[in-house]
Amino acid sequence: MPKLLQVLPPVFHAQQTVSLNDDLSQVSLYFIYAAMAVYTVAFLAYVWHLSQAASTVKANRKGATRIEKWAFILLIISALFHGFGVVLRGVAASRVPWANMYEFSITGTFLVVAIYLVSQVFVKDIRILAVFMSGFVLLVLGIATNQFYVQVKSLMPALQSYWLVIHVTVAILATGFFNIASAASIAYLMKGSKLVETSKLKGFALTRRILGLFPDMNKLEKLAYRFNIIGFILWTFTLIAGAIWAERAWHRYWGWDTKEVWTFIIWTIYAGYLHANATRGWSGKRSAWLAVIGFCAIIFNFTIVNLFFKGLHVYSGLK
């Protein structure tokens, strides 16, 4: 590519300036890396905690509580780094930091952690899910920094709307709630699995003891339900807000664009989940499976649909 002129001459069309700060976005990235490093340690500490708490040796079990405390402190430290990284990214781009996949990932995972940290104050039962949560956040951040990273860019005109703030924030929040719920459902399904329950293999004995640390199945089911209903209300709002925005930006409120299709599919799966909870023969395991499938659909929507499907929502920011 030939180089652009060093200074572009004044041009004969409307002028508007954007402010982008690449150095600052680099600093933001360092904060994200730092958060990842601490998340890694926190995750390992949580794994260690589980293995100690599930130990057959009494002394080990006693030490487990202290390990959990440390893991929790590490989690908070990483969340702080993470939060700084997100905010700096927004400052660097002079706008909300969720306009491409990298930014969705860092903001979304931060909200997952924030929802978790707030919820665990009220719902003590979810403390044990920290290992799922930190592992998941770490995985997403790893993919985001490796695969999705893009330099700060200005917003394309279709995204310049306060609906970006409303619609996307609520969608990310919904995802956070669904995420925690799916962790509870996975724990529920593992606990209820015949294989885990009856297998004589050694690994399963440990798994059984670890699962024994989780709330009982009944509680897990309720936890999943409570987080899922919040997620579902937020998702319903996301769908409506998306339609309102689409009417302004794309001249129709609903057009079965691939992203709209998947938002609808996810909504329908979770509606199925809620019905399943109230249908004899479907509450329990089957509805837990539906919750897990619903969350898989969300992940699919965010990754495969964003990257490989054709549609109007082309904002992964990746070529």
Partner: peptide
Amino acid sequence: DNNVDHVGNTGTPID
């Protein structure tokens, strides 16, 4: 965006 320092963003439509 006509700012040449905005590597990767120069030439992006803003409005």
